[in-house]
Nucleic acid binder design. Structure first.
Lengths: 144, 144
DNA sequence: ATAGATGCAAATGTTTTGCAGGAAA
DNA sequence: TTTCCTGCAAAACATTTGCATCTAT
């Protein structure tokens, strides 16, 4: 498993005169096995299990490479930590401010509206950030 | 001018056993005179002109008070700096990634869609963040 | 052999906190 | 005179960078 991604990484490294190292492959593996939205710190902890002595610096640097290679996407929510997700079709996020749960949603109507707004203001749209913050179903139970 | 806000600040300070100081009033004044979306650092620079020796710590602490008092609203874009705006009707932002220009927009259709999405996922919506990043009309000219 | 990677320590940049001296009530 | 503020210095925190050493090619 994750064979395709590993090949993509090797290809990217070769194309950019970068070297194929155990650390980089281990980080890719751990990242692909981590469901959801992992932070550099979480990745560092998990890689460390099977690769003691690895520095957090290497995780930061490698995640940047994975993003450049199109194997990871960077996300920033309100807690000041950079998180990474496996690239897939466009979406935005609902974030529970109590438990930290992150749910993805997709809305073509909003996408269309964004395009229209950008056009209205003569902006050339590059990207957007759209996050809804609230309490998830489970966390609402605390109140009652 | 800014008489209403100054009175609101005085009232808030009294209600919370906080003291009315020259620094706090100066920071409120400078903030109200700063159009757009100012950072703590910009505010510090501007307050310093008429109040040499003021510390950045005081600006940070005072802006927090102004937010609590409902006289300022905190905003975070992609540059890692907290900015403040004067509260007014709900809106979101277009940000030019070249010149940093920030334009406000408002879209009731998107707001309605957000409510519907939150309901679909059983979230109790508290707030959201919605920013469009791109090149403004002026900055697009650089390309041609 | 050599370009590039690693990991430590130190630097960065923004914001927060501890604390001694200072001002408002 | 007591409580709250201020401003400095130091701490926090996530991330980046300098550098000597190590490793893939």
């Amino acid at each position: 498993m994750s064979q395709l991604e590993r090949e993509a990484l090797v290809r990217y490294l070769e194309d950019h005169q970068l070297k194929r190292t155990r650390q980089r492959e281990a980080i890719l593996d751990v990242f692909l096995q981590s469901a959801g939205h992992v932070s550099s710190d979480e990745l560092h902890e998990r890689v460390r299990d099977r690769f003691p002595g690895i520095g957090s610096t290497t995780v930061y640097r490698t995640m940047k490479i994975l993003c450049d290679a199109g194997l990871a996407v960077e996300r920033n929510f309100e807690d000041g930590v950079t998180r990474y997700e496996i690239p897939h079709e466009h979406h935005d996020h609902l974030v529970c401010v109590r438990c930290g749960r992150i749910v993805e949603f997709e809305c073509t109507m909003i996408e269309a509206a964004q395009e229209r707004i950008a056009t209205d203001y003569q902006f050339r749209l590059l990207r957007h950030r759209h996050e809804l913050y609230g309490h998830c179903a489970d966390c609402q139970k605390i109140d009652s």
